[in-house]
């Protein structure tokens, strides 16, 4: 077990380094000058040069990368070019909101996806199956931001049931308020994964139903709902860990858009604003953190799988 965990961690480290190089390079090859944010009409060429020197923009790329990555490891993530606050501080503030949103969305999509998947596997080709299949086809074809617009129109503008923006109402600090703010972003974010998971669970359950133990349970007179939702579902859920691990990049991409529409104060909103403002240090940091979360997530998924299903280690 320890060997498996160590091996996966050792595999993840070069990936993180490579991601850091990519995120650094992406910004280096980009046009636009970070100094321009500080230039006023009164700035003299000498001042601008001094500024460049001070920001370390005159050193070679390798020096800049090494300096950047070594200070990253020391916890110094630099300052945002646009609001001059420490990058690390802003990211630490934002990560919990994103994790909360993504975690809730994952939970919702696993539970509803598993439920819909089992329902449609009970009678393949039946009306439930066809309805779920149509629904999941539509769900993977809807742009998240458009779904968000429609929900906003219906539930905020027309019916006035749900708040349209942010994470909490100003001055209110209750769980109900937080939950109300979460409903729409979580629906938007979990929509696609619910469809993908339900399809996956459906085909797994159909395979599982052919197993001998199901026949035995039927012969012993077990209740149908017990067979489907206990034994069969439990056996079908295990490989779902891998599916969830693989869906993390998509989920995070979705979080970027969802957060910026609903004004959710998370990493995605921070990242998109950084891109639109050419905020170099912030872009590098969000790319790194976002990719780091994905790499860490799939690492966890692999390890979890190994812990739950010991056969994996023997194969390894």
């Amino acid at each position: 077990m320890v060997r498996l965990i160590l091996k996966r961690i050792l595999q993840a480290i070069p990936m993180l380094v490579a991601v850091s190089i990519i995120s650094f390079m992406l910004i280096q090859i980009a046009p636009g000058d970070p100094v321009s944010a500080y230039i006023t009409p009164e700035s003299q060429p000498a001042d601008i040069e001094l500024m460049r020197e001070k920001m370390g923009l005159n050193d070679s790329i390798i020096t800049q990368y090494l300096r950047w990555s070594s200070s990253l490891l020391r916890g110094d993530w630099g300052y945002s070019y646009s609001n001059h606050r420490p990058v690390a501080e802003q990211i630490v503030e934002r990560v919990p909101a994103t994790l909360m949103l993504m975690g809730s969305a994952l939970l919702v999509s696993i539970v509803s996806g598993a439920f819909l998947g089992v329902l449609s596997a009970i009678k393949p080709g039946g009306w439930i199956d066809r309805l779920v299949s149509l629904g999941s086809n539509i769900a993977i074809s809807i742009p998240g931001f458009w779904l968000a617009m429609v929900l906003l129109y219906l539930f905020s503008l027309k019916l006035g049931w749900l708040p349209s923006i942010g994470m909490r109402s100003i001055g209110v600090n209750t769980t109900t308020d937080l939950l109300k703010h979460m409903i729409m972003p979580v629906i938007v974010l979990s929509f696609q994964d619910t469809a993908i998971i339900s399809r996956y669970v459906r085909s797994r359950v159909m395979e599982e139903l052919k197993e001998d133990y199901v026949l035995t349970e039927i012969a012993y007179g077990a209740k149908k709902s017990d067979i489907y939702f206990r034994s069969v579902l439990r056996n079908s859920l295990l490989p779902l860990i891998t599916i969830v691990g693989m869906s993390l990049p998509r989920l995070l991409s979705g979080a970027f858009i969802t957060e910026s529409i609903f004004g959710w104060p998370g990493l995605g909103q921070l990242g998109i604003n950084a891109v639109l403002r050419y905020d170099y240090s912030m872009i590098m940091a969000t790319t790194l953190i976002a990719s780091g979360l994905v790499i860490l997530g799939s690492l966890l998924a692999d390890i979890l799988y190994g812990v739950i299903d010991p056969r994996i280690q023997e194969l390894d």
């Binding site: 991409s253 050419y278 872009i283």
Partner: peptide, 15 residues
């Protein structure tokens, strides 16, 4: 694949 592709595209597109 480990970098959220949407963000990658966003950066490239913005620049």
């Amino acid at each position: 694949m480990s970098i959220p592709s949407f963000f990658l595209i966003l950066i490239a597109n913005a620049y």
